[in-house]
Computed example of a mutant assay.
Amino acid sequence: MTNCAACHQPNGEGLGTFPALAGNANLADANLVIDRILNGAGTMPGFGGQLDDQKVAAVATYIRNSWGNDFGPVTPAEVAAKR
């Protein structure tokens, strides 16, 4: 798995065409976040084949609650339902 910070930056502010995660209201939609991690979109690769449900939930929870975001946790069960 590549380092997410390479595109989204360590401060979550994004880089060029890569979207900012800091203060991104779209992260309120847990299903959208899970889908992007699993399947990717545009230039972002999907990681569904590399990460189990627990790890996807951990990544989703982290980005939904970092850099000023406060959107709550994602559970492995939510991830499993999206697979």
Rank of each mutant, 00 (worst) to 15 (best):
R36E: 11
G12D: 10
N31P: 06
N26R: 12
F18H: 14
V56T: 07
F47C: 02
G48V: 04
D52A: 10
C7A: 14
A28P: 02
A6H: 09
G23E: 03
Q9P: 03
G46A: 03
D29R: 08
A6S: 15
A60T: 15
L27N: 07
C4A: 06
V59E: 05
A28E: 15
N11V: 01
P45C: 09
A6Q: 12
L21A: 09
A41R: 08
G23N: 06
A28D: 14
N24Q: 00
V56K: 00
E13I: 04
L21V: 08
M44C: 07
A41Y: 02
G23W: 02
T43D: 14
A22M: 02
G16M: 12
G48I: 03
F18Q: 14
G46P: 01
P19I: 13
P19T: 10
T17F: 01
P19E: 01
D52R: 12
M44D: 11
N39A: 00
A6T: 15
P45R: 05
K55D: 13
I34Y: 04
A25F: 10
H8E: 14
F18D: 10
A5W: 09
I37Y: 01
D29L: 07
A30H: 06
L32V: 08
A28F: 02
D53L: 05
I63T: 13
N24V: 01
A28G: 11
A22L: 01
E13H: 00
G14M: 08
D52Q: 07
K55M: 13
N11R: 07
V59L: 15
V56F: 09
P19L: 08
F47T: 01
L21E: 03
A58R: 06
G49R: 12
A20P: 00
V56I: 15
F18Y: 15
Q54I: 05
G49K: 06
N11P: 06
D53T: 05
L51H: 07
D53R: 00
G42L: 07
T17A: 09
G40L: 02
T61I: 03
D35K: 15
A41C: 00
G14R: 08
A30M: 05
D29F: 10
D35R: 14
M44S: 11
L15P: 00
N31L: 10
V33T: 14
I37P: 09
Q9F: 03
G49H: 12
A30S: 14
V59A: 15
C4I: 06
A41I: 09
N24K: 01
A57L: 09
H8W: 12
M44V: 11
A22T: 04
V33L: 04
N39I: 04
N24A: 01
A28V: 08
F47Y: 15
N39P: 04
V59F: 08
H8N: 13
T61Y: 05
C7M: 11
G46K: 03
G16Y: 02
Q9M: 14
G49S: 13
D29A: 11
Q9T: 15
T61A: 06
E13L: 09
G40I: 06
F47R: 11
D53W: 01
I37M: 08
K55T: 10
T43A: 13
I34S: 09
F18L: 05
A22R: 13
A30L: 08
T17N: 15
G46T: 00
Q9S: 13
P19W: 05
P19R: 02
I63P: 07
N39V: 04
